[in-house]
Design a protein around this nucleic acid. Structure first.
Lengths: 256, 256
DNA sequence: CGTAATTTTGACGCGCGTCAAAGCTTGTGG
DNA sequence: CCACAAGCTTTGACGCGCGTCAAAATTACG
């Protein structure tokens, strides 16, 4: 998958930089950044020591300084609601970028915490912005990523607002599937980095409901799961359930 | 409200341009754009003939060329799901910008239709991007707006995912309140540009539920509504219900 | 190996979606 | 200016999905 645009990968892999290890995948890969541009980008990126599980990258209210690219591990972002409840707002896997929601106010609107041992690249935002002004390709790419985020959020909003609990879970699993797949990992067999509780919170469901759903999907033969390991055994059926496919008279398990 | 930063308003009002009539409010106002910059921006903006209610600005799949600023009227954006259902993804009021979700794919992911007679400014994106490369303030502002959008979407996702129907409606009403308020209109008395059906669809509720909710909120003395006219009579109580305020031992109508 | 956190299971009730039908607008043509 | 049709909005009755409470089983971690 990551191999698809051969020429550029070769170009990038000549540089021992942040892009090579996939962390700036989103910023570098899909667009017209020359090797020199990538090197400039690499120069402003700061590596950070790996974070331990449970450590916070930033907290709500912290001053916004940098955005971060996940190199390995995983983060969750969450807010604390007025009544003190934790509300999980997102999960961030390797190759993805965190902190874009802080640009507008200058402070982070949510917390970011490591779900497992996690290493990151820090990208100071003023520097990135400055560089983007000089490198049109980078500016475009930055806008693309943010647009992507808006689009994805809208999708998720749709997904979560009007679908049943089962559909929500299926949609979330397919999302992880394609995100792992996009990084060259298996799209059908992976390890969820978050607890069931975090996942249910994210989807706006009770943990008990999640548990029952996993069992039901397993009984329907759509997946096998033990602990955090998940094996999706019928992607196309799941896509039909998620409404990601026109459903041309395939047999549906329910509501046919 | 719009009067708050006196110097800049004077500066802008000297120019007979798109900013003066509020349509590029988001791009111009809150940041360090000089008069010359604003004039350059104004030059790339194209006015368009007002659109009739029901007319489409763009459709899903259309090539992405421009983003649009609403000058007057209102738009709704929606997608058609795999099973043919319309899914309302957003409403866009004067001063707001539409089309940002199309940047990443190069095609519009949803439909945009006028809810009433609506006039717009068209901003060709390649030109805007080019200009943003030359005017750092504009680039920053563009990123700010997109970040704002991401933040707002996340909020909405939170709102809609785990709140009751009543809370969803209250949150939506407060959102309109502050958006109208930010444009100098009354934050407590306004006309909703969309039908109840569109609003319920947006919030992931049945129209019947919406109807019952409006009645209930009215019975609780939180608002008065007739048709699309809405009068919010107890903003602070609504904020408490929406969880936008710590709720320091105020009397709550329910669940105390 | 022990304690705490997480996940699972079951029972139960309520919120809200669904179906059905009655008002109420809105627009159009005579 | 009124009549009629096609939406919208409202109201009521009913049932199911999923949240909640409670407790057991399992896992994680020091």
């Amino acid at each position: 998958m990551a191999e698809s645009s051969g020429a550029r990968v070769v170009q990038l892999s000549g540089i021992r930089n942040a892009c090579q290890d996939c962390s700036l995948f989103q910023l570098c890969l899909p667009v017209s950044l020359g090797a020199a541009d990538v090197e400039m980008l690499d120069n402003i990126v700061e590596r950070r020591k790996p974070m331990a599980r449970g450590a916070h990258l930033y907290r709500a209210g912290d001053e916004f300084v940098s955005i971060y690219a996940v190199r390995a591990g995983a983060l969750k972002t969450y807010a604390i609601s007025a009544d003190g409840e934790e509300q999980v707002t997102g999960f961030h896997l390797p190759g993805e970028i965190v902190g874009l929601d802080a640009i507008s106010r200058g402070t982070h609107p949510c917390y970011a915490v490591a779900l497992e041992t996690t290493s990151l690249c820090e990208i100071p935002f003023v520097t990135l912005e400055d560089l983007a002004g000089k490198v049109p390709g980078l500016q475009h790419q930055l806008l693309r990523i943010m647009s992507q985020e808006i689009f994805g959020d809208n999708e998720m909003l749709n997904a979560v607002a009007r679908r049943s609990a089962e559909e929500r879970l299926v949609i979330a699993l397919l999302s992880f599937s394609s995100r792992f797949g996009a990084r060259g990992l298996s799209p059908v067999r992976f390890r969820l980095p978050m607890s069931r509780g975090d996942l249910s919170n994210y989807l706006g469901l009770a943990p008990e409901t999640m548990s029952r759903l996993f069992r039901r999907l397993q009984d329907q033969g759509l997946l096998r799961s033990e602990g955090k390991e998940v094996h999706l055994t019928d992607l196309s059926a799941m896509r039909v359930m998620a409404g990601q496919v026109p459903d041309t008279a395939c047999e549906r398990t329910h509501r046919g």
